[in-house]
Structures are given as C-alpha cells and as structure tokens.
Simulated scan of single mutants.
Amino acid sequence: MECSSIKHPFIFLFFCLVFLSPLVCSQLYYNFYDTTCPSLTRIVRSNVLSAMANETRIAASLLRLHFHDCFVNGCDGSVLLDDTSTLKGEKNARPNQNSIRGFEVIDKIKSALEVACPSTVSCADILALAAREAVNFSRGPFWSVPLGRRDGTTASESEANNLPSPFES
C-alpha cells in the first residue's frame, strides 16, 4: 500500500501507533535534526577530522565500528553499550575483541553534541555520520545519511559472535 493511496490517514496512524512497532512506522529523514541540532554535521566532521589528524587508521576503525553495530539488530548503537549486571554487550564478543575501536571518538562527539543540543542526537546517528565522514575524509565516497535512528537499549554478545570472519570467502 502506498502512502498516497490511504483513504483514512487518521485510522492508519492510529493503527501504526497502537498495533505496530515504532520501528515499522518510523521513518528516517535527511533533515531530521535541521531545526533541533543545526550544528550536528559540523560537530561530527570536526571531531572526526581531529581524530584522523591524530591517527589516520581511526577512519577505518569508525567504519568497522559502524558495520559491527549494524550487523546485530540493525544500526541502533548497541555496540556502544557497556556490560551491566543484566546485559552482556557486544563489545566483548569474540569477533569484536581487539578488533573494534573508536569508542573514544564517538564519546567525544556525543559530549560536544550534548553541549550544543542536549538530549537530541542519538548515538546510533552519531555512529552512522562518523563512519560516513571518516570514509569521505579518506577520499572515499560521500553519501547522504538519513537520520532519526533511536538508540537500542539492549545488546547481544551471542548475536555479535555470529559476525562473519575476515577469512571467509
């Protein structure tokens, strides 16, 4: 069903709100933070550029971090969650041990964004933008990133253990 063919949009909206997961009805937008955090892109870019000036390898690390996040339950920032007494996170999964890095760059970006626009930008969106900027600053392609992801509140070490090996064909 296309959106333009909906005869009763209020009934459809009510159905989405009541019966479907927010992920099914939510959408990502390129201009999601344009009014709530107009400095978002500048802050992410400057922090990634600064990190790359200190260590050029961080660009590949940020892209890898984003891939490892997206592999388990989608791009929800769950790879950033630390272990708790009730949660075994993804950071310590076998494929991630001594493999993923760049957490400090994401933390620095998040701290700067909390000053500029408190409680606004999700860590999942920061991670997606940081990966894009790292690739672009490394003379790779640029792509538009739709925004509006919600941060995950759970993580799964066991699912992260299913990441493909770099030695697989």
Rank of each mutant, 00 (worst) to 15 (best):
M1P: 00
C3I: 07
S4N: 06
S5P: 01
K7N: 07
H8F: 10
H8W: 08
P9A: 03
P9W: 09
F12S: 03
F14D: 12
F14E: 12
V18N: 04
F19H: 10
F19G: 06
V24I: 11
C25W: 04
C25L: 06
C25F: 05
C25D: 09
S26E: 14
Q27V: 11
L28R: 03
L28G: 05
Y30F: 09
D34P: 05
T36Y: 01
C37A: 08
S39G: 03
L40Q: 03
V44K: 01
R45W: 09
R45T: 14
S46H: 05
N47C: 03
N47K: 03
N47W: 03
A51E: 04
A51L: 06
A53R: 06
E55M: 09
T56H: 07
R57T: 04
A60F: 08
L62C: 01
L63G: 00
L65M: 09
H66D: 05
F67H: 04
D69P: 00
F71S: 02
V72D: 01
V72I: 06
D76C: 07
D76P: 01
S78C: 10
V79H: 00
L80N: 02
L80R: 05
L81E: 00
D83N: 14
D83E: 11
T84M: 03
T84C: 01
T84P: 01
S85N: 10
K88L: 10
E90Y: 03
K91M: 14
K91W: 11
R94V: 14
P95F: 00
N96C: 12
S99K: 07
R101M: 15
R101S: 15
G102L: 11
G102M: 12
F103I: 02
F103E: 10
V105P: 04
V105S: 04
I106G: 00
I106R: 01
D107W: 13
D107Q: 14
K108I: 07
L113R: 07
L113I: 09
A116Y: 06
C117L: 06
P118E: 09
P118H: 08
S119E: 12
S122Q: 02
A124H: 10
D125S: 05
A128E: 01
A130T: 03
A131E: 01
R132F: 13
R132H: 12
V135L: 09
N136H: 15
F137E: 14
F137W: 12
F137L: 15
F137H: 12
F137M: 13
S138K: 06
S144Q: 14
V145D: 06
G148K: 01
D151Y: 13
T153Q: 15
T154A: 15
T154I: 15
A155T: 00
A155E: 02
S156V: 14
S156C: 15
E157I: 11
E159A: 15
A160I: 05
A160T: 08
L163C: 08
P164Y: 15
P164D: 12
S165T: 13
P166E: 15
F167S: 13
